[in-house]
């Protein structure tokens, strides 16, 4: 409603306003940046608590160090960007920027609440999946362009892991699509609200697969093999400094945010139980925040999994399980029908 009136005042069509606001305000960039800042702070605070530490504190003692990330960001913004002589200059500089851009595109079709979306498509799941799979390509190119052995090995690991993770993600998404008989997020949420059973209950296997694939694709801790600090320094991002390094750090969190939104929509009932735009949006946001907080909490529990074991885990355990999830999805679809 607000949107329609705003469009009238600004003399622009409603769809254009939607297409502008969704990727740039909510669920896109503006909310995204705030979420990333909060998430990194929360991650550090939670890990600190488990580890009997205090965590970031002295930047703003009254806010328990919440401004630490802003201080870090200012520092990154003012730092010189070093591009060493052996790099492929163009790709080196474009790499993080392109990756970040690709990763903000899914927010055009990811709904952030009832009626809050950029474009509504019958194939929004496929579009989100396709746009998310673009980013590893540029990450691999970053590893190549850095002309550094550690970065190169990191790029190779990214290639290996992306392949295994994305198959699992695709199977998880497919089983949800089969379950609700749609490839649209909005319809999927509406189906969940209609039946009153969230996806997590009706197809827990798919939810587990989606969550694990999400951890892998976003380099969360048991699977942060691409970053691999103890072997390959910072993986494909080893040579970056300044703002570009801040962007590479943000990549994983942006991906995590996008995938958590998708997880919320597919398995946690989206904006249920609310139907008004504002409450619905808050519901979606809080649910996905909980998913994100849990996935960053795992940093305090696990170490890094071995590369071959992670590959084995995904191909030999989760991939067959994906077909089980798909079969379960089809079965549930029949029951719903």
């Amino acid at each position: 409603m607000v949107l329609v009136e705003l469009a009238k005042i600004l003399h622009v069509p409603v769809w254009a306003l939607r297409g502008f606001l969704a990727p740039l305000v909510y669920p896109g960039l503006a909310v995204l940046l705030g979420t990333v800042l909060f998430l990194i702070w929360a991650e550090r605070k939670m890990a600190a608590r488990v580890q009997q530490r205090v965590g970031p504190y002295y930047v703003s003692p009254k806010l328990h160090g919440a401004l630490q990330l802003i201080a870090d960001g200012a520092r990154f913004a003012l730092q010189e960007i070093i591009v060493h002589i052996e790099t492929d200059r163009l790709m080196f500089i474009l790499g993080p920027i392109l990756t970040f851009t690709f990763l903000t595109l899914p927010f055009t079709v990811l709904p952030g609440g009832p009626g809050i979306y950029g474009f509504r498509s019958d194939f929004s799941m496929v579009i989100v999946y396709a746009l998310l799979t673009l980013s590893p390509i540029t990450v691999i190119l970053m590893g190549w362009a850095s002309s550094n052995k550690f970065a190169m090995i990191g790029g190779g690991r990214e290639a290996l892991l992306t392949v295994s993770g994305e198959i699992t993600l695709a199977l998880a998404m497919l089983s949800v699509a089969a379950m609700y008989g749609t490839l649209d997020f909005v319809t999927a949420v509406e189906k969940q609200m209609h039946t009153g059973i969230i996806g997590l209950v009706s197809n827990p296997i798919a939810a587990l697969l989606f969550f694990l694939a999400m951890l892998l694709l976003t380099d969360r801790v048991p699977f942060d093999i691409v970053l691999g600090e103890q072997e390959i320094v910072q993986g494909p991002y080893t040579e970056y400094s300044g703002v570009l390094y801040a962007l590479t750090m943000a990549i994983d969190y942006v991906k995590l945010y996008a995938l958590s939104l998708a997880f919320t929509l597919l398995f946690l009932g989206g904006w249920a139980p609310f139907t008004t735009p504002l409450l619905g949006a808050i519901s979606v946001y809080i649910k996905s925040l909980i998913v994100m907080l849990f996935s960053v909490f795992l940093r305090a529990v696990y170490g890094r999994m071995k590369l071959d074991q992670a590959m084995n885990f995904f191909w030999a355990r989760l991939f067959p399980l994906g077909f089980v999830a798909l079969a379960l999805g089809v079965f549930v679809h029949v029951i719903y029908a």
Binding site: A47, V50, Q51, Q52, R53, V221, D224, G228, E229, Q230, R299, A300, V301, Y302, G303, R304
Partner: peptide, 16 residues
């Protein structure tokens, strides 16, 4: 040994 496996909790617990 913990931080070499990126297990930050073991690292901090050990030192704490």
């Amino acid at each position: 040994g913990g931080i070499f496996l990126n297990h930050s909790t073991m690292f901090m617990w050990g030192f704490g």
